[in-house]
Design a binder for these strands. Structure first.
Lengths: 211, 211
DNA sequence: GTCTATAACTTGATAGAC
DNA sequence: GTCTATCAAGTTATAGAC
């Protein structure tokens, strides 16, 4: 069945090229912003002719939208650690670890998200209003329950979540500033561990689950 | 002396127009990013013909640079609260208050700075390496002294500073996200107070200066 | 100092050969 | 499916009248 075989081959080729383009686009959008990024530069980074980008993604905005959606999915998965925990020390501690790891492994994605939100979320406002809102309210309810059970200090759950996002994503979004203040060198393995430990220590002590 | 008088008048006019342009530019750069902002839009917001912008600021980049420098100065002034304090509870508490107030009053400036740093600080890298580095090391030394005097928990001073920046600036940079999660309404006066209190409670308890 | 008109350039997107 | 050549639109910046 040559046709089926060729179809599969085409699908694979398509997936490979799409992944290649998405990876290049994430990098370029992160470094230049949506307005500053050019399809030509994304094509160069991906190693493809510019016209091919338009073959896979009809417009610059459709490509950008896919990049933002991918990041959002990665963050949602980090929430699993939150849900499966038996208590605040384990749940929030693991969530910080997971978010810090994402900041280290996907700094470009975090920056694209930050840029999108800073510009009033022109492309993903619907996600903020639906998926993110539900996620946030759900996790705030878990925190509230822990508080009522006397397992952590009575803090405002929403502001705690904002602090978790702000602190962990700062290591991706402001990574260049941190790197500069670190003498121009990226954080080493040991320094990343120190960062994780510092964030967890202050926050977990701040919500009264460690002494 | 008509010439002197006219010169003063010109100076005043110049200062007024420059301030007008800078204010409009801050807003537009914050909402669209450097690449997405256009001189035409800045001119429209300022209520001036586009050519006048080029009369006061020769290039788009020179205008942008001035906007970023202004923000940096505002933040440096917030450091005074840090220095004049007698101990960590007062110093860090007042610093959080000051930074939160700036996030509320100058959200556009904070966003421009965030965007600049995220894009690897192409315009103000020299400030990061000199002024900001010196400021950071100086404040880290103060924190270190407080720790050695047993007045606060032994946390990494740099990571504490990063947390202070991240948490306070989050309310400006991600203000749109917070507003959306708040049901689409900006934080009220009471909610801003709640935010300040939440941040201070968790961090001050986290560094062991309140119970 | 101000403003209109335009030059010089870059960009996103597409047509059409292969 | 791929790629070269090119268009149409929009941008920064400036020339030159007032």
């Amino acid at each position: 069945m040559p046709q089926t075989s060729r179809t599969n081959s085409k699908k694979e080729r398509r997936q490979e090229n799409e992944a290649l383009i998405l990876s290049a686009a994430e990098k370029v959008f992160a470094e230049a912003g949506f307005g500053g990024a050019t399809m030509q530069l994304i094509a160069d980074v991906a190693g493809l002719p510019k016209a091919n980008l338009h073959y896979y993604f009809p417009t610059k905005e459709s490509l950008y939208r896919q990049v933002v959606q991918n990041i959002f999915q990665i963050w949602l998965q980090a929430a699993d650690t939150f849900d499966q925990a038996e208590g605040p020390a384990e749940g929030i501690g693991a969530y910080i670890d997971a978010k810090m790891e994402i900041s280290r492994r996907h700094p470009a994605g975090s920056k694209v998200w930050a840029s999108e939100v800073m510009h009033r979320a022109p492309v993903i406002q619907d996600y903020l209003e639906t998926t993110l809102m539900e996620w946030t309210d759900g996790r705030a309810a878990i925190v509230q329950r822990w508080i009522e059970e006397g397992r952590m200090a009575p803090v405002n759950p929403h502001h705690l979540l904002y602090m978790l996002w702000a602190t962990t994503q700062h290591y991706a979004d402001f990574g260049h500033q941190i790197e500069t203040l670190n003498g121009g060198a990226p954080l080493s393995d040991a320094q990343w561990e120190e960062a994780k430990k510092s964030v967890k220590d202050i926050i977990l002590r701040g919500i009264g689950v460690i002494k």
